[in-house]
Each structure stands twice: as structure tokens, then as C-alpha cells.
């Protein structure tokens, strides 16, 4: 490790990020969708739950910009409220998974005795495809917002734990860990201000990528009927509802799917850019 390794790496990462137009687009799209979801009640005059059966499956028009769904509800309104739910599950799930996975990874690297046990458990988690894993969890935990967040969180957790352990191990090999111990620092200071403070960049990058997976998983669970029960608006379940009318009213499923696609793609672009910007080998 030479002088240059740390020199302003944070600000340099930022400069690289800002130069990348993909980041601007992805971040802009995400912020736009997030704001629209948060302020949905003020953006639309329609009620997301009130049905109007005479208006059902109308194609896009001036009154209903994206048309209506099978219950005659304004589709744009449904999508805004749906994005709310899906993003909430995705974000809260990722946050939960990152906290848990990060803690497991750091502790495995710091307390080497725990490493074997922790990582074998993580290996078991990783040996299931994450969709299948999330599905079984959601089925076991039952319906409800809490259990969805837990299911999504536990699905993204193993990957984050792995990355955290790797990042933490390389920090553990640095002299300042011993040096901090040699002045008598307790474990909690070493774990926080020494280990986490130096190991977090790759963990953060990976977590951004995990956001996309989490949102996709949340939508998948909704699509398969394991998400929140109707009439709650959720992007996956809106897409699933529209599937029955795919031939007479393709706009319902299509609009919901495109929105999911755009959200996930934006998170992945952002994560990729973050990874490239943090990677010193990339010029």
C-alpha cells in the first residue's frame, strides 16, 4: 500500500461517476420514479382502489394516460402506488439484508473463529437460487409487508455477507488493525472505525447492485401471488392481473413490466458504474 492508494479515493470516485452519462440517466430515472411514487397522492386525482367496472380495460386516452385495468382503475395511478410498494419492499429488504450480511461478513473476518461456521451457513444459503429461496421464505413467513421485507432481505443477504467478508479480510491484513489493537482499542472501535470505515466501498457497490435484484424479487413474488394480497397495488401483481387480458388489453401487463424493467436496469447501471469508478485498474 503506497501513499496514492488512499489519496482522495472518495472524491476521485465521485469525479469518475459524474463523468459517466449513464450514471446521470440512471440516477435521474430512479429519483424521478421514487419521487413520483412518494408523491403519488398529489400527482393523480384518481383513487387506486375505487373500481369502475364500466371503465374496465380502456386503452390509453386523454383522461386515463395509460388506460385502465380490469377493475376500471386508472393504470397510471395503480402503477405509481404499485411502485411505492415494490420500492419499499426492495429498499427495506436490501437495507435489512445489507445490515445483516455486512455484520456477518465483518464478524467472520474479525473473529476468525466464527469464520468457518458463518461462511458454511452462507454457502448453504447461496446454494439455493435466490428466487426459489425468496419464494420459499415468503411462503413460509406468510403474506404481509414484514415477511416480504424479511424474505427479500434474507435473499440478498448471503451475497452481501460474502463480499463484506472479502473486503474485511483485506483490511484485517493491514498494519493499522494491529496498531489500533496495540494502543488498547476495544473490539467495537476496531470493528467500526477501523474495519467498517475502511472496508465499506466494495460493500456499498455490491449493495447497489443488490437493490436491482431485490426489486426484481419483490415484483416476482407479487407476480406469483406470494406478495401483498389484492387490492393492494404492487407492480408484480399488476403485471400478473393484466396477464389474463393480454390479448384484449396488452397495455396493463406491458406498462407494469416496463416500469419494473426500467427500475431494475437503472439500479444495475448505477451499480456497474459505481463498481467501475471504484476499480482503480479501469482507466
Amino acid at each position: 500500500m503506497t501513499d496514492a492508494t488512499y489519496t482522495g479515493s472518495g472524491s476521485r470516485t465521485w469525479r469518475r461517476l459524474r463523468r459517466n452519462p449513464m450514471v446521470t440517466i440512471a440516477l435521474g430515472v430512479l429519483i424521478l420514479i421514487a419521487l413520483a411514487a412518494i408523491f403519488a397522492p398529489w400527482l393523480t386525482s384518481f383513487d387506486p382502489y375505487e373500481t369502475a367496472l364500466r371503465q374496465r380495460l380502456k386503452p390509453p386516452s386523454a383522461e386515463h394516460l395509460l388506460g385502465t385495468d380490469s377493475q376500471g382503475r386508472d393504470l397510471l395511478t395503480r402503477l405509481l402506488y404499485g411502485a411505492r410498494t415494490t420500492l419499499l419492499i426492495g429498499c427495506a429488504g436490501t437495507a435489512f439484508g445489507a445490515l445483516l450480511g455486512g455484520a456477518i461478513g465483518l464478524c467472520a473476518a474479525f473473529y476468525r473463529r466464527l469464520d468457518g461456521v458463518f461462511m458454511r451457513v452462507i454457502d448453504v444459503f447461496l446454494s439455493f437460487p435466490s428466487i426459489l429461496f425468496g419464494l420459499s421464505l415468503a411462503a413460509i413467513l406468510g403474506p404481509g409487508l414484514d415477511s416480504l421485507i424479511i424474505a427479500v432481505g434474507l435473499s440478498v443477504m448471503p451475497g452481501i455477507a460474502r463480499i463484506s467478508r472479502g473486503a474485511a479480510l483485506s483490511v484485517m491484513a493491514q498494519d493499522y488493525m494491529d496498531s489500533g489493537r496495540s494502543i488498547g482499542l476495544p473490539d467495537r472501535s476496531l470493528l467500526g472505525r477501523y474495519l467498517l470505515a475502511n472496508a465499506y466501498p466494495p460493500i456499498l457497490t455490491y449493495t447497489t447492485l443488490a437493490f436491482g435484484d431485490a426489486v426484481l424479487l419483490a415484483a416476482t413474488l407479487g407476480f406469483l401471488g406470494l406478495g401483498l394480497q389484492p387490492p393492494t397495488a404492487e407492480l408484480g401483481s399488476i403485471a400478473a392481473e393484466g396477464r389474463s387480458f393480454l390479448f384484449i388489453a396488452p397495455h396493463v401487463s406491458t406498462a407494469a413490466s416496463i416500469l419494473i424493467f426500467v427500475i431494475v436496469l437503472s439500479f444495475n447501471l448505477l451499480g456497474d458504474a459505481l463498481r467501475d469508478a471504484g476499480d482503480r485498474r479501469a482507466s
Binding site: 488512499y6 493499522y176 494491529d178 472505525r193
Partner: peptide
Amino acid sequence: STALNPVQ
């Protein structure tokens, strides 16, 4: 060069 915590 490596014995001080770089972020503090």
C-alpha cells in the same frame, strides 16, 4: 504508511 487508520 499502513500503521495509521487511513480514514481518521
